[in-house]
């Protein structure tokens, strides 16, 4: 990547960072959503001994809905405020996608770590294979961020954009959740190691495929 692309992607990323840090609406909403979700799940499972598969499943469901509801905002806000036109005029689509996807990835990884720490703390589950847990969490978050960013862009100009972006993202992310649960349950001492490694490889592949194809699909619709 040459310095021109780096400068453009950094500019979009910094714009998102500065806007988020100054308004803090998305950050606070995301944190609140994470805490409330974890607390609700733990409250519903009060005094219930749950297995690794169930812990992984609930964690991924929380992560899926947290990202599907908060990450598309990054494009929806641009369209609602009318600032997308300024970007269309001065930016190349690939840099817009990369800058926003990186910002969403960061947000998703932070939310994922927070959700995991809180949830594992509440459920008292011990991670037996930490590296597998970390790979599944990070690769899963990158895939989620890439796919949800793209869905946000695709739904951004629709009439019912806020609901639609989550509605079109969730079915696309279900295979990812299946892989994520398969990998993470093994890291929580439930299942065969070979299955967990296979799922982790699948997640990394999904993340690479999403991040590689996302900019091209986005470029096709950016000026529509």
């Amino acid at each position: 990547m040459n310095s021109s692309w780096f400068r453009e992607i950094r500019a979009v990323f910094m714009k998102e960072w500065q806007s988020e840090m100054r308004s803090q609406s998305g950050l606070i909403t995301g944190l609140l959503f994470s805490v409330v979700t974890v607390y609700t799940i733990s409250f519903a499972m009060l005094n219930t001994k749950i297995k690794g598969t169930e812990v992984a499943g609930l964690l991924w469901v929380a992560l899926l809905f947290s990202s599907a509801s908060s990450l598309p905002r990054i494009f929806l806000a641009e369209e609602e405020q009318g600032t997308a036109e300024l970007l269309r005029l001065v930016a190349r689509p690939h840099s817009v996608f990369w800058g926003k996807a990186l910002f969403n990835s960061l947000q998703c990884v932070v939310t994922g770590i927070l959700l995991s720490v809180l949830y594992l703390g509440f459920s008292g589950k011990v991670v037996t294979v930490p590296w597998l847990f970390a790979v599944c969490l990070v690769a899963g978050c990158l895939s989620l961020a890439g796919a949800v960013t793209l869905c946000g862009a695709i739904a951004s100009q629709a009439i019912n954009r806020a609901v639609l972006s989550a509605a079109i993202a969730v079915p696309l992310l279900l295979p990812l959740v299946s892989l994520g649960v398969s990998g993470m349950r093994v890291s929580l001492n439930d299942g065969l190691m070979s299955d967990g490694v296979g799922a982790a490889i699948g997640l990394v592949g999904y993340a690479c495929a999403t991040m590689a194809t996302g900019p091209y699909i986005f470029a096709a619709v950016w000026k529509s």
């Binding site: 695709i154 739904a155 629709a158 019912n160 079109i168 619709v221 529509s224």
Partner: peptide
């Protein structure tokens, strides 16, 4: 659902097409 959410035929084609590629 995405296709019905756009009224302009050009946008319909572009955005639903992008989604079908992503799927």
């Amino acid at each position: 659902a995405l296709r019905f959410a756009y009224t302009d035929s050009g946008k319909k084609a572009a955005f639903s097409g992008a989604y079908s590629l992503a799927t």
